[in-house]
Amino acid sequence: MGDGLADAQDGYKLTSMTTELPAGKDTAYKFQIMGPDGKPVTAFAADQTKKMHFYAIRSDLAGFQHLHPTMAGDGSWTAGLSSLEPGTWRTYASFIPDSGEGKGKDLVLSRTVTVPGEAKKTPLPEAASSTEVDGYTVTVKGVLMAGMAHPTTVSISKDGKPVTDLQPYLDTYAHLTAFHEGDQAFAHLHPETETKDGNGGPDPAFQALLPKPGSWRMFLQFRTGGKLHTAALT
Rank of each mutant, 00 (worst) to 15 (best):
L166G: 03
A6R: 01
T19Q: 11
W89F: 13
L107H: 15
G214A: 00
V163A: 03
G24T: 02
T18I: 08
P123G: 08
F179Q: 15
T42D: 01
R90K: 01
G160S: 09
V163H: 09
W77S: 07
H180T: 00
A23T: 05
F179H: 11
A72T: 08
G11A: 06
L176F: 02
E85T: 10
T19V: 08
S215W: 00
K158R: 11
A79T: 13
P202N: 14
A178N: 11
K158M: 14
A23W: 03
P69Q: 05
H68I: 10
E101F: 11
T88N: 08
K196H: 13
P116G: 06
T18D: 10
G38Y: 11
T137H: 07
L228I: 06
K120F: 14
T49I: 11
V140P: 11
K212R: 01
D203K: 02
Y92D: 05
M1S: 10
T91P: 08
A46R: 15
L166N: 02
Q167E: 13
T177V: 09
Y29A: 12
E118F: 14
V115D: 07
E126Y: 04
F219I: 03
T172M: 02
S59Q: 10
K121R: 09
F222W: 08
Q32P: 13
T234V: 12
K51M: 04
G63F: 11
A93N: 07
S59L: 09
A174Y: 08
G104C: 04
M148P: 06
K51H: 07
F95Y: 15
A127D: 10
Q65P: 11
